[in-house]
Each structure stands twice: as structure tokens, then as C-alpha cells.
Amino acid sequence: MANAIATAHEHDAHHAHDEHVVLPQHLHHFETEEQQREAGTFGMWLFLLTEIMFFGGMFFAYLLYRNWYNPAFVAASNQLSVKLGAINTAILITSGYAMALGVYAAEVRKKQMLVWTLIATTIFGFAFLGVKTVEYKEKFEKHHVPGASFDVKEFVNPAAFGLKEEPLAPDMAQKTQIFFVLYFAMTGMHALHMIIGLALLFWLIYRANRGDFSSGYVAPIENFGLYWHFVDIVWIFLFPLLYLINKHVG
């Protein structure tokens, strides 16, 4: 076998796939559709790795400052509504459930079911952002947004505001700002990911309705599903870390 850069005649390694109909979405530089699909999934997972590290920096900041300024974190966390947080968690899980069903619908080529599950995913996504808006608005009104207008009076003198909290010393009360910085940075970055996801969902719904994903080409739906579930997972950690720090005291 001297001339070793031989050529694969008739793609003999891929007889197993000869019965497949070549889809228009199949890109020329992939040997098989399977290779293309697995490359897409792998690429999406690598992207999610970068997301883990991106949020990871903020999670570390949270871990550090919560250990340093625990009283401030407890008091500031008690300002968040567990009820709204829990409702939002349920909403987001429901949205993820709808998305999972959407992936199933695409895989078994049910066009109507796919479109409706994607619409449900979108609706629950917006519901989540709606609740988040209500929460953010309250923080603005109470001057709990970090920056020039940030005010610690509720933490220094909680009794005057009808709160049962222990009052914080002024220097520790200042540190509540760090909590709210992390709260806004983390939930804000999470919300930004949701907004990007919702924009993509509109595009996916349009294409699903056109029938793009009902003939065996499911990669965009599956990969978007991975993204959407990742956003869920971030929230699954954010909820106990931000809302449930110390509910059992006071």
C-alpha cells in the first residue's frame, strides 16, 4: 500500500446511512447528517461551558461577600419576596417543561404540537420577566438599586418601616448594597439571557410554523432547548441563594 492517501470510494464507511433522504439543511462539509447533528450538539455544550464560567465569576463573588457580610446579606435577602421568587421558579420550570415537550414534538415530527409548545415556552418566559419587572420596580421605589440613590435607612432602622429585622450597624448596613449589586447583576444577566432566548423563540416559532423542523431536522430545536434549560439551571441556583438566605430567623 504505497500510495496511502487513498480515497474513500463511494463513501464506503457510510453504507448504513444510504437509506436516508438527504435533507436540504445538510451542509456540504459534513460527511453525514449524524456527524452534523452531533457537531451541533457538542458545539452548543461547549458554548454552555463558557456560560458556566461567565456566571461562575458572579457566583464566586456571591460566595465571598456572603461569607464576609452575612448579616447584611440576611437583612437584604429578607427584602425579597419568597412568594414571587417561588412563583417565578415554578413558571420557569413550566416553561422548560414546555420546551422539553417541544423537543419531543420535533423529534416525532408533530408540527402542530411543536408550534404550540414553543408558544407556551414563550408565554411562560414572558410571565417570568413580568414578575421580575414587578420585583425590580419595587426595588427602585425602595431605593435598593445600587448606585447614587441607594439608601440604607430600612436596614439601619427597620422598626421605623414596620420591619421585624434586627437593625444593622451603619457600616454593615452599607454592605447590603453589595447584596443588591449581586442580585441585580445575576438576575439581570439571567434576564438578559431570557430576552435573547425569547427573541430566538419567535424566530423558531416562525420556522416551526413553516414546517422546517417537522421532517427530521431537529438540531435547532434541540440546541435551543439546551440553552433554555441552562437558563433554567442558573435560576434554580439563584432562587435559594438570593431569596432563601435566612428565612427561619425573624
Binding site: 422539553a100 433554567d232 435559594p240
Partner: peptide, 28 residues
């Protein structure tokens, strides 16, 4: 979160969150 467990509270919360995350990753 409403049961006083001292230092265990954040650990339990994170443990449950991790279980949820693993469940989402494995099946969803």
C-alpha cells in the same frame, strides 16, 4: 428554608438546587 438548621440551611438549599440541576441536565 423556614426550618432553622443553622449552618445546614445553605448546605441543604444548595444540595436541593444541585439535585434539581442534575435532574434537568440528565433528562431535559
Amino acid at each position: 428554608a423556614f426550618i432553622p438548621m443553622g449552618v445546614l440551611n445553605p448546605i441543604v438549599a444548595l444540595a436541593i438546587a444541585s439535585v434539581k440541576a442534575v435532574v434537568v441536565m440528565l433528562w431535559f
